[in-house]
Design a protein around this nucleic acid. Structure first.
Ligand SMILES: NC(=O)c1ccc[n+]([C@@H]2O[C@H](COP(=O)([O-])OP(=O)(O)OC[C@H]3O[C@@H](n4cnc5c(N)ncnc54)[C@H](O)[C@@H]3O)[C@@H](O)[C@H]2O)c1
Ligand SMILES: NC(=O)c1ccc[n+]([C@@H]2O[C@H](COP(=O)([O-])OP(=O)(O)OC[C@H]3O[C@@H](n4cnc5c(N)ncnc54)[C@H](O)[C@@H]3O)[C@@H](O)[C@H]2O)c1
Lengths: 211, 211
DNA sequence: TTCACGCTGTGTAATATTTCACAATTAAAG
DNA sequence: CTTTAATTGTGAAATATTACACAGCGTGAA
């Protein structure tokens, strides 16, 4: 409830996303209340941590009855979501890009991929998975036209930095980058890199360290 | 140099993986020395953090000449890699699985996908991207036979938990999970979940918060 | 009503991670 | 040889994140 804008940490935002997905499942299954310790399992955390996270969205849990599922979903949505559906662009419609396109297309309430971009002539102009693929030099135009805020970047590593800069210049405000390259920028655009090679090497390392 | 086994944090392991990838690029380009502040840019960190990371692998940087690239690569390899090439299994050869298969197959020095598993009859028995796909009931047998330590899990969310338990029972020591499900286990197996939906929702959130 | 129980909200402590800051070291120039 | 400039290694401080612990409340049973 308190509108004192203390900044919410990235970690908390991530967990809220996870809580919400689970809460929607609960709702589908007819469960209408949930305890902090149940949510805690989702993130291998403690109940106290969950309660702290939920405080930040203006939680109103009830002693001994826990939290009301539908209200929690609403409160998290109020924080995470924008009032209008967010338009997303996918840059690079290759092997990974196509998988992501199928995965993220439709069935999401608050965002949708609305445009594809690629520099391969055989892809530009085509409609893939119901979405039109544009050439890179239409980027600025389409981003403005469709009010695209966020881009998923799935181009080869060599092209990642330059493409990211083009996206920023076109007015994109956040990038989810799948290329195994760290992208530096002086602008205040949010860039999240999902580095699968890093993740796999880490898993391999810890496969020998545990037990 | 000091063999006092202080545990190295996950964060440091991740950064070492990133440093190494960059160092190999440098090596290809003929650069044979590197400064901590150069590596720092890679991870949006500080030079001091890089030096701390490198201390943990037994760094031997040289004042005013920085670190020797080839030696750093060797030291990091000594920590991250096993002496033998690690065998990886891919579970779930769907849209994402096939993309991952292409991405991680070959061209990696220290690990390789050696077996695929799926429960779809039309996939079992086939060879995809040069790798044989087995049925799930051959899991334990093949894992033992091929000494598979680590698995990439790309099955539907509903099947993720059960499949993960099967992997653990079969002797897998680490799992890289792409299903949007947290996997709980009482065993000491390492499980890393790469949650793309979480990452995208986070990006969308911060697209409105920055600037 | 009264009590016991279980859960939330939160101050405080503990831990983890990052950054600062500087002595020591090396290279190179004068 | 001496000075200057740059970089490493690292103790200590700062910050971020998580966990503990308990007061207070709501619920249901007696
Ligand atoms: N395939 C995977 O499973 C996987 C896994 C992890 C990371 N990645 C990373 O994701 C990225 C894409 O991988 P992929 O397997 O889909 O590669 P891909 O070669 O199949 O697809 C790349 C696509 O990007 C397009 N492209 C190339 N340069 C471009 C540019 N300058 N501007 C716009 N489009 C351009 C190409 O035309 C192609 O359609 C790579 O950086 C890769 O390292 C892929
Ligand atoms: N496609 C993407 O880009 C994407 C992105 C993010 C996350 N994911 C997640 O990755 C997972 C796979 O996604 P996908 O798009 O490849 O799905 P998919 O349906 O294309 O592929 C799933 C594969 O798993 C197999 N499978 C199903 N149940 C199984 C079981 N019990 N044991 C073994 N194999 C089984 C199926 O036969 C199929 O081949 C899902 O959990 C999805 O949520 C996918």
């Amino acid at each position: 409830m308190n509108k004192l804008k203390q900044k919410i940490s990235e970690k908390t935002i991530e967990r809220l996303s996870i809580y919400r997905r689970y809460l929607k499942d609960l709702q589908k299954n007819g469960k209408d209340r949930v305890y902090s310790h149940e949510l805690a399992q989702l993130v291998s955390g403690t109940a106290a941590q969950v309660r702290r996270d939920l405080m930040q969205v203006g939680s109103n849990g009830c002693s001994s009855k826990g939290y009301e599922v539908s209200m929690l979903i609403d409160e998290i949505a109020k924080l995470l979501d924008c009032s209008e559906k967010q338009n997303i662009a996918l840059i690079g419609v290759g092997n990974l890009g196509r998988a992501l396109l199928g995965y993220f297309s439709g069935s999401r309430e608050n965002y949708d991929i609305v445009a594809l971009f690629d520099n391969a002539p055989d892809k530009c102009g085509r409609v893939i998975c119901g979405k039109r693929c544009y050439s890179m030099n239409q980027l600025t135009e389409i981003v403005k036209e469709q009010k695209i805020s966020t881009a998923i970047l799935a181009v080869p590593a060599e092209a990642a930095e330059e493409t990211a800069q083009n996206l920023i210049d076109a007015g994109i405000k956040a990038i989810l980058n799948f290329a195994p390259r760290h992208i530096t920028t002086r602008s205040r655009v949010f860039i999240e890199t999902l580095d699968m090679t890093k993740a796999l090497e880490k898993a391999i390392y810890f496969s020998r360290k545990n037990t």
